[in-house]
Deep mutational scan, measured.
Amino acid sequence: KLETFPLDVLVNTAAEDLPRGVDPSRKENHLSDEDFKAVFGMTRSAFANLPLWKQQNLKKEKGLF
């Protein structure tokens, strides 16, 4: 399991300012399950079932792209 970080560490943070080991294209993977659901309004599995373009739009909207 990946290390999780608080939302404010990941949202609207440039790649070079992210904690070590965080993939800038997969910031959402480093949210706790609770934060993930609070941000996206759905579970990880529901998010994973969305088309890629919709996932990317949601990530942009939430500052996690």
Rank of each mutant, 00 (worst) to 15 (best):
G21N: 08
V22F: 04
L52A: 10
A15L: 13
E3Y: 07
K54T: 12
G41K: 09
E28A: 02
S25H: 15
F65T: 13
E61H: 08
K54Q: 14
A14V: 09
K62V: 14
L2S: 11
P51V: 03
V11C: 08
P19M: 03
A46P: 00
F47I: 00
F65P: 04
D35Q: 06
Q56S: 10
F65N: 12
R26F: 12
L64A: 02
K37C: 14
D8Y: 09
K54W: 11
N49Q: 14
E61G: 06
T43V: 08
A48P: 00
F36T: 00
V9P: 02
T13L: 10
S32E: 04
L64N: 02
D17K: 09
N12K: 08
R44T: 02
R26D: 04
L2V: 14
L2W: 15
L18Y: 06
F40Y: 01
A48Q: 13
F5M: 05
L10A: 02
V22E: 03
V11N: 05
E28W: 02
V11R: 13
K59V: 06
D33R: 03
D17A: 09
K1L: 13
E16L: 07
L31T: 01
N57Q: 14
G41T: 04
R26G: 07
D35A: 07
K37P: 02
R44Y: 05
F5N: 03
L52M: 12
D17I: 06
F47S: 00
D8E: 14
F47T: 07
W53T: 09
N12T: 07
D33Q: 05
P51K: 03
F40K: 00
R20K: 15
K54C: 14
E16Q: 11
S25M: 15
L2I: 14
A38T: 14
K59F: 05
R20D: 15
F65Q: 12
M42W: 01
K59H: 01
E34W: 08
S32K: 06
E28P: 03
L58N: 01
A46E: 14
N12M: 08
T13F: 08
K27H: 03
E3A: 12
A48W: 10
D8R: 08
S32H: 05
G41R: 08
L10M: 04
A46D: 12
K59T: 03
D33V: 06
K37S: 13
P51A: 07
L7P: 06
D17G: 08
S45R: 12
S25E: 14
E3M: 11
K60Y: 12
P51R: 02
